[in-house]
Design a protein around this nucleic acid. Structure first.
Lengths: 349, 349
DNA sequence: TTGAAAGCGCTACCAT
DNA sequence: ATGGTAGCGCTTTCAA
């Protein structure tokens, strides 16, 4: 059933029916009710293509997920983030168009998204340091917001990010307070913007306390379980081995834990571990795991929020929405704390 | 730039330009080349709304992700699956429309997706036992495929699933072969179809070997770290505690491991653990983790494949594509194996 | 091999 | 408060 047929059923013009359905004020309440009821009864809903053509808006938002086909895996928090965004879109009548883009002609891709009118705006995921996409999108003129930030980018843009630097600054300080002096940083790929910021937070905490920075204690890789495992093994085999690990992701932390327990060491006793993760969903109701989260209210909330920002930006193209910096929260668990045996070791060193 | 303007630039009719761009055979090669070049030069791409309206096809595929707002989290493998599907769509010119649907009027939602012409087909995620969505979609007439299966559904439908039953049958047998007689099953939510099948595999392995089934050893919950932890703790505190754990997800397994090591027990020594996970991405290059994967070639491949099935179904609506059952692969690690101390314990029992 | 024109279903402007 | 109608940009049929 289309608009014309529906209007004929009702003995009204298509104009009136359209107005009634779209909430225009100049329709009498009686007519509106009749129309709405008839539409429901006939399972009528407006054809999306026709609407796009007539209005010039697609009522769709694009999410672009860069993914080198080579080896990179999808960050699991991405799913939660997008679920949050989806909630916002459902409320506002937008569709969510997800594009997985792998090594292809990126510029052409973004440009096409714009010229084809597939989406009214974009969410950029996984920003790198000095990410070229930002200048490009700015130039194209399609409204966009960034999930995360990109250092060393000239142009203005709206973003929503975790305060990664501060989170790792505080986590490092926390370990320093416990007496640790050799802290290994198990970080993500070095060209990712978030990894850089975490590294900077770690370094500045050491500097501020006058603790020597040892580049051998820092590693940057894709965050797999095996990466955590191998890295921890390597560190633990050295003479001046670290007494603490600061791990950038829960997945890598599983490996770190495995390496520790394989050697017969005990967490919070022989070794301290602080895990950072963007979301605590998997750890709900767990009081005693050493976790340092960055998103107070969960990644899902963050997704919601960023989606709202974008819808805002589409509505007011001249007034870009205020960027958002989410602060970290430290949740300390038993096994992070200073166990007596560990204390002795640290006090001697 | 639109088609009309482009055609004027070239001194051709819109018809010819359209034909040239869409690969119709009746255009001379010379003309086609001219047109394609001009289109590229002017950054022309056809307006999606207009095309939808004219052709009646949206060139978009919907992925529906059910998510009760209450507490449920997003399965992280979902991200990888959808990344795989996205690759297929990118090749075939389809857009991927992701709908997060939470407790809303589902029937109306699916129907609208169809009548509005937003998508040409659907992928159904997270099927439950006797999932009502399948009959509904069948009735609506929109092509769809299911990621997973749904038991107790009358109608025919196309699906791609892991052989969950067989995977858990084999995993259980593996533990039985090691001598275990009390094996705890840490499973997912009981109304999920995959959880049911895994449970059935576990049970039939016990039955076949004449090992008593103890319902107290089976738990069904949402798979968080804490669930694994609490469940393992509870089990390990009993007198006739299990000697092995069969865990349905890597996340819950982290908790199980934690509980084990907290009690000073050693994996593969005092306790055996077999983990099932749909994907090994996080464990790449790890030879010695006890994992039982179900998807040989990774979830991403599975996503690709299911997307191809759906595109097929859209092309041949009368010939539904063959469903696919993926077989499991057992990867055994050190810590699963029969350690001497454990052997003794088992031999005595 | 090319072109003219109808029409997809809707919105929005202009009348009334 | 309601209706007539042009037009959004494309595909597709028919004609040449």
């Amino acid at each position: 059933m289309n608009l014309k047929e529906l209007s004929e059923t009702l003995g009204l013009s298509p104009t009136t029916v359209s107005r009634a359905l779209n909430g225009y004020p100049e329709v009498s309440e009686r007519t509106r009710r009749r129309v709405v009821e008839a539409a429901a009864a006939h399972n009528y809903s407006p054809n999306s293509g026709a609407r796009r053509l007539a209005t010039g808006r697609s009522m769709a938002i694009g999410h672009v997920l860069p993914l080198s086909t080579q080896h990179e895996m999808v960050n699991p928090i991405f799913a939660d983030f997008i679920a949050g965004a989806g909630e916002t879109y459902a409320k506002s009548g937008y569709d969510l168009v997800l594009s997985v883009i792998s090594d292809r002609d990126e510029e052409g891709f973004y440009r096409e998204l714009s010229t084809r009118g597939t989406v009214d705006g974009l969410v950029v995921h996984g920003p790198r340091i000095a990410d070229p996409r930002i200048a490009m999108l700015n130039q194209i003129g399609l409204p966009f917001v960034v999930h995360g930030r990109s250092s060393e980018v000239e142009v203005e843009y709206s973003w929503l990010d975790i305060n990664n630097r501060r989170a790792f600054f505080r986590a490092t300080n926390f370990l320093l307070d416990l007496g640790h002096r050799r802290i290994a940083l198990v970080n993500g790929l070095s060209d990712m913007d978030f990894a850089r910021r975490r590294y900077l937070g770690y370094r500045s905490a050491l500097e501020e306390r006058g603790v020597a920075f040892d580049p051998k204690l820092v590693s940057h890789e894709e965050m797999t379980e095996n990466y955590g495992y191998e890295t921890a093994r390597r560190h633990l085999a050295t003479v001046d081995r670290p007494t603490a690990f600061l791990v950038s992701s829960i997945i890598a932390a599983i490996g770190v834990r495995r390496a520790i327990s394989e050697l017969g060491l005990k967490m919070g006793h022989d070794i301290s571990v602080v895990i950072h993760d963007d979301d605590l969903s998997y750890f709900r109701n767990t009081g005693d795991v050493p976790i340092f989260t960055s998103v107070r209210s969960s990644v899902r909330q963050a997704g919601k929020r960023l989606a709202e920002m974008l819808i805002d930006a589409i509505g007011n193209p001249d007034q870009p929405p205020q960027s958002v910096l989410l602060e970290a929260e430290l949740t300390v668990g038993q096994s992070t704390g200073p166990a007596p045996a560990m204390r002795r070791v640290l006090e001697q060193g």
